[in-house]
Design a binder for these strands. Structure first.
Lengths: 345, 345
DNA sequence: CTGAAAGCGCTAACAA
DNA sequence: TTGTTAGCGCTTTCAG
C-alpha cells in the first residue's frame, strides 16, 4: 500500500503542495473554497502528514523521554503519570526508557535519544543517584545536555549545573525521625536501600543528625542495607530479628522495604506497632493497602512528574527556569507507628 | 550551537558524504586508512547521525508504542518490562501512551503514532476490553492496522482479524473456582471489575459455568462490580459484609480488588481464610506483600510483554505469525484460601 | 491568496 | 574503493 503524501493531495486537489501545507498547519490564509476542496481530499484519503519530514525541517520532534531505573517499582509509574499528563497538554509524546539501573543501558539510551532528536530528557535514578558518580558517567550527561535539555529528578550530578527538581529527602527523614522521637522511641534503626546510593545516604545522615540533637546515636548494627524491594525489606527485617538487642522502631528507605519489613515482623509474631514501629517513605498507594496501614513520608510523586515536564518545557522553549526546584515532603501518620512498650517517657 | 551533519564530517575528512555514510552503516567496504580518518573526525565532534533523516528515507523508525490504560496499576509495568527487554534486543525504542482508559485519548494517540510513523503498536485495555466495542472505535483500529502492524494484548476487537495474544482468563477463573470448590466452598461470590468490560464478563461467565457443573448457581447479590482498584475492592467488600447472608469465599477480578477486599474483611474482624476465602487474579508482586499472602491466578505478565513484542516484530518484518497466541494461566495457592467453617464436606 | 523551488540530513543507486 | 546525485515528505521563503 503506497503511502500517500502531500503531493498526492495537492495533485488531486489541483493546487500546489504549499497550499496544502498551509491548510494543514493553518499557517497562512487560504481561500475558503480551496481549503474545503483540500480538506475533502485529505479526509477521503485519511491523509496524515509525515511527522518525520516535518521534524527534520523544524528541528523539533514533539517527543521527550523519561529514563528511569525500574518501572516495576510503583514510585516511578506515579511520576510518569504526572509527567505524561502535562506532556500531553503540551503535545509531547513520551519515550520510556527503563534502564534496570544499569549504567550501560543509560548510556545506550542517552545515545539513541540523541539520534532520535528528542526535544528533552527527564532523568531519574541510576547514576544521578550515586553517592560518588564516576566522572565519565557524569560527563556523558553534561555533554549531552549541551545538545538537548535535561532535567534531573530526585538526583544530582555534582558540579554539573544541570537543572533539577527533587524532594527534600533530608527533611523527610527528619520529619519521620522526629515523629518516632515524639512517640518516645529512643532505640531507632534504619533499613534498606543500596549503600552507595545518595537517597540512602541522605536519609541516613538526616536520621543520624536528628538523633544526635537528642544526644542519641544510630547504632551500626541497627543500620542495614540491601536494595529497594519488598523482598529486600523482608530479608533485612529477618536479619534484624535475629539480634537479641533490637530497636523499638525502624525507618525504611522506601515503602517497598517497609512493607517487606512489616511482613517479616508480623510473621515473626510481632505486633505492629505495639512491638515495633515502622515508617516508610514515598506514600505510594501500597502504603494504604497493608495492615496496619503504613506511616510514611509523602513526596508528592505526581507533582514531581508534572513539574519536571514543566521545567523541561521551559528549557525547550529557550526560557531560563530556575536551576532547582525543591518539593517539601509531608509526614503521613497512619497505623504502623505507636509508643514503644515499657517506656515511661 | 550549530548541529553538525554528515557533510561537515565529509568535508573535514576530505571525502564524500557517501563514504562517511558507508563507515557509519558498514554498508560497503571502505579502505582502512580512510575509515580511520573518518572515525577520528566523528569522534572529535561527537557526531551522531540524525535518525529522522534516516527514517524518512528508510521508512522505518526503530520505534514502537505501547498503549495502555493505567501505568499505575502494577500489572502494566510488569508487561511493559517484559516488552521493553525484548524490544531492546531488537533495537526498538518504546513510546508509552497512558490513556487513563479514555477512548478519546486512545484515538488521539493512535493518530499521533501514525504521524510519527512508529513501526508497530501494542494495544492493551480500553476499547479492546469492552464487551461491546462501538463499531467506530473498532473501525479506527482496523483502519490503522492497514498502515502499521498492531498487536492486541489481553483483548479483542470482534471480527477485526487483528493479531492478538492473551491469557486464557476463562481457564484461569475456572481454575480458581475449582480450587474453592475442592476446598468445600459452595457459597461463592465475585467481586470487582467494570461490568461492561470483557475481562470481567469472561471471568464471571467461567465461574458461573463451573458452578453450574456442580449444580450450583452464582447468586446475584454476591456479584458486585465497580472498578479494578484497591479502593474499589474495599468498597465492595464493605458492602458485601453488610449483607446478612454471605458467601464463604470470593473470587476477585484482579489482585488489587482482592487486596482491597482483604483489607476490608480484616478490618471488619474477619479472619482470612478461616472466615472467608479470597482469591485474586494476576499474581502481581503485591500478592505476596499482604498478610495473608494471596491465593491468585498467575498470568505470566512478563511473558505477555515479551511475546507481544516478538509477534509485533514478526509482523514488522513482513512475516506472518499466527493470529492468536494464548497463554495458559496457573493457580498459585497461598494463604488466603482455606476450607469453609461449619462444613462437613 | 497561491505557486515554484530550495532545502532539512541522510541513503543508495549509478558511475567512475 | 570512492564520488555524484536524486530523492524521502515536508515547510518556507520569495515571487507573483
Amino acid at each position: 500500500m503506497k503511502t500517500i503524501t502531500i503531493y498526492d493531495i495537492a495533485k488531486e486537489a489541483q493546487v500546489s503542495v504549499a497550499t496544502v501545507s498551509r491548510v494543514l498547519n493553518n499557517t497562512a490564509p487560504v481561500k475558503e473554497s480551496t481549503r474545503e476542496i483540500i480538506m475533502a481530499v485529505i479526509e477521503k484519503h485519511q491523509f496524515q502528514p509525515n511527522a518525520l519530514a516535518r521534524s527534520l525541517l523544524k528541528k523539533e520532534t514533539g517527543t521527550i523521554a523519561m529514563i528511569l531505573p525500574d518501572i516495576t517499582n510503583p514510585f516511578f509509574p506515579e511520576v510518569f503519570w504526572g509527567a505524561e499528563n502535562v506532556a500531553r497538554e503540551k503535545h509531547y509524546t513520551f519515550f520510556l526508557c527503563d534502564t534496570a539501573g544499569e549504567h550501560s543501558r543509560e548510556s545506550e539510551y542517552l545515545s539513541i535519544l540523541r539520534e532520535k532528536r528528542v526535544d528533552g530528557i527527564i532523568f531519574l535514578g541510576g547514576r544521578i543517584n550515586l553517592n560518588q558518580c564516576p566522572p565519565a558517567l557524569s560527563q556523558e550527561v553534561v555533554e549531552l545536555s549541551k545538545h538537548v535539555p535535561i532535567v534531573l529528578v530526585n538526583g544530582n550530578l555534582p558540579r554539573s549545573g544541570l537543572h533539577r527538581i527533587y524532594t527534600d529527602e533530608e527533611e523527610g527523614a527528619a520529619l519521620a525521625t522526629q515523629h518516632l522521637l515524639d512517640l518516645g522511641h529512643r532505640r531507632i534503626g534504619f533499613l534498606g536501600g543500596m549503600e552507595e546510593t545518595s537517597t540512602t545516604q541522605v536519609k541516613l545522615k538526616s536520621v543520624r543528625m536528628k538523633l544526635k540533637e537528642r544526644g542519641l546515636t544510630l547504632r551500626k548494627d541497627w543500620v542495614m542495607f540491601h536494595d529497594f524491594s519488598i523482598e529486600g525489606g523482608r530479608t533485612l527485617m529477618d536479619r534484624m530479628l535475629e539480634q537479641e538487642d533490637r530497636p523499638t522502631a525502624v525507618l525504611c528507605v522506601n515503602d517497598f522495604t517497609a512493607i517487606g519489613a512489616l511482613k517479616s515482623a508480623t510473621q515473626h509474631g510481632l505486633k505492629i506497632p505495639e512491638d515495633l514501629s515502622i515508617v516508610g517513605f514515598d506514600d505510594s498507594p501500597l502504603s494504604r493497602a497493608v495492615i496496619p496501614e503504613l506511616t510514611t513520608v509523602s513526596q508528592n510523586t505526581n507533582q514531581l512528574g508534572e513539574l519536571s515536564v514543566e521545567m523541561l518545557h521551559e528549557l525547550i522553549s529557550g526560557r531560563n527556569p530556575k536551576k532547582r526546584t525543591v518539593l517539601q515532603p509531608k509526614l503521613v501518620v497512619r497505623d504502623s507507628t505507636g509508643r514503644p512498650k515499657n517506656t515511661a517517657e
